[in-house]
Each structure stands twice: as structure tokens, then as C-alpha cells.
């Protein structure tokens, strides 16, 4: 027989990445949480301050569920979607803390599968994995967010990396930022991975918008929060040079067995 009976199997690289992410965050005091992939409009959009006519709610970006409706908090018709980001867990977690009267701060990471209705190619998939980080406390600040994100990438990529914030816009954060990470391969001197710039665009982040805190029942006058999200597939592809995201989802052991 080719395969010896004692031969060990292989862990999927997405699982390896998630285990590592949970481990990094656990050491910083952050719990790992999970939640539904099929989500109502409230948790995926409304509570995140994404207005009803926002382009991301269009059919071409979001997978909407057929024949399923509920009422939102304002008594309006509300549909269901495959979650377009792991940010729905920000809302679920904040609601849970309020409901159960749990002690703050909220410090969580949420790795999980997300969905976008877009054409697939080597760098785009209709399903992929994201990780979200959320911290809500009286002492939350942008400087603390930077500290956590730097620590996170440094641990994941195995070298001391700095990040830089660029101005950006997401309805659920204010200030809102695009995050660039110093290139882990060339340490910022320029190489083919960072397209000679020394930096890699890696995620979005910002201070949780007061409307989002309020929507989840947290007093935005008393508490502040910050959140960060990035693609796990992309981190893996960068770290290991995987050239086609689709290989992560067709069950192909030619990929898995390399890990």
C-alpha cells in the first residue's frame, strides 16, 4: 500500500491560520467568537450604519436569501443574506454583553466564512474567510488599535512589522482607515510581493461609529470601541505564495497536503 496506516493527515491551511489567529488574540486577552453565516439585514447592514440605499446592498454584491423575511426593530420588512463580512459578530457580541450584563471590556476576534456575489478568479472567491477584531471599553483609542494590529501581524508573519493608517471610509467606523502592513518579505525595502512599495494593503479598521454602539444598546457617551477586519485567505496567500484562492475551497489535497 502506498499510504502507511500510521501516516498523519493534514490540517487545512485556513484552519491553521484561524488557530494561529485565535492563539495570538488569546494571548492579548481576546476571546474567539463565532456566529451565523446566514444573517438578517439588521445585523449585516442596518446596525452597522450601512444605509438602505448603500451600493453594497445591491444584488451584484450580496447573496440574498429567497422567500425569507422578518421585521426589523422599526417594524419594517427585513430580508436575509449570506453575511458579507464578519462584522455581524460585532453586533451579536455587543447585544449579548448588554443582554447578559457582562462585564466590559469587550475584546473579541471573530474568524469566519463570508460571502460576496462576484465573479471568481485566482484572487476573487464568492466565499472566503475574514477575521474581525473588536474592542469596546472606556479606554479604547486609535493608538491602542494600532498597537493590537501591529502585534497581530507581527505574530502572524513572524517578524516585527509596523502598520500605517490611511484615511478611508466605512459607514460603521469613524475615524475609518485602510491598513497597510510593512512588507514581511523585504521589511519595507521593496520586493515583488509588495510591488516595490514596501507596504501591503491588508485590511480596514477604525473607531466604532457611535451609531453602531447605540444600535447595539451600548452608551456611546460612556464607551468607545475600535474594530479591524482583514481577509484570512489573503494573509495565507501572501505568507505562503498561494497563487489561486479557489484551491482553498475545492477540497484539493494537493494543496492541503503541503501543510
Amino acid at each position: 500500500m502506498l499510504q502507511c496506516s500510521f501516516m498523519k493527515g493534514h490540517t487545512h491551511p485556513i484552519t491553521l491560520a484561524i488557530a494561529k489567529i485565535s492563539d495570538i488574540f488569546s494571548k492579548m486577552g481576546f476571546d474567539t467568537v463565532d456566529g451565523p453565516e446566514l444573517e438578517d439585514e439588521w445585523h449585516n447592514f442596518d446596525a452597522l450604519n450601512i444605509p438602505a440605499d448603500h451600493p453594497s446592498r445591491d444584488m451584484q454584491d450580496t447573496f440574498w436569501i429567497k422567500d425569507r423575511k422578518t421585521k426589523n426593530k422599526d417594524g419594517e420588512d427585513s430580508g436575509y443574506v449570506l453575511r458579507t463580512h464578519t462584522s455581524n459578530l460585532q453586533i451579536h457580541t455587543m447585544e449579548k454583553y448588554v443582554r447578559e450584563g457582562k462585564e466590559f471590556p469587550i475584546a473579541i476576534c471573530c474568524p469566519g466564512k463570508v460571502f460576496r456575489n462576484e465573479a471568481t478568479d485566482a484572487t476573487h472567491e464568492a466565499q472566503f474567510h475574514q477575521v474581525e477584531m473588536l474592542y469596546v471599553a472606556k479606554d479604547a483609542s486609535l493608538a491602542m488599535m494600532i498597537g493590537i494590529i501591529e502585534k497581530f501581524f507581527s505574530e502572524f508573519f513572524g517578524s516585527n512589522l509596523t502598520i500605517r493608517l490611511r484615511s478611508s471610509y466605512f459607514p460603521f467606523v469613524e475615524p475609518g482607515n485602510e491598513i497597510d502592513m510593512q512588507c514581511f518579505k523585504c521589511a519595507g525595502t521593496g520586493c515583488n510581493i509588495c510591488k516595490q512599495t514596501g507596504w501591503i494593503e491588508i485590511g480596514g479598521a477604525g473607531m466604532v461609529h457611535p451609531k453602531v454602539l447605540d444600535a447595539s444598546g451600548i452608551d456611546s457617551k460612556e464607551y468607545r470601541g475600535f474594530a479591524f477586519g482583514c481577509g484570512i485567505d489573503r494573509m495565507l496567500m501572501l505568507k505562503y505564495g498561494i497563487d489561486d484562492v479557489r484551491l482553498l475551497y475545492n477540497g484539493d489535497l494537493r494543496l492541503v497536503n503541503q501543510f
Binding site: S22, K27, Y135, A143, I146, G147, I148, N177
Partner: peptide, 17 residues
């Protein structure tokens, strides 16, 4: 933003899965 000095929260706990 580059003027901000990164800090880490002091949570004194381990996160749980």
C-alpha cells in the same frame, strides 16, 4: 496618524475559544 504611539490594552486575562 504616524504620530500616534501604539499601545496595547492591559487585559490581564487569556482569551477563550
Amino acid at each position: 496618524y504616524e504620530k500616534l504611539v501604539p499601545v496595547l490594552p492591559k487585559l490581564n486575562r487569556q482569551g477563550i475559544l
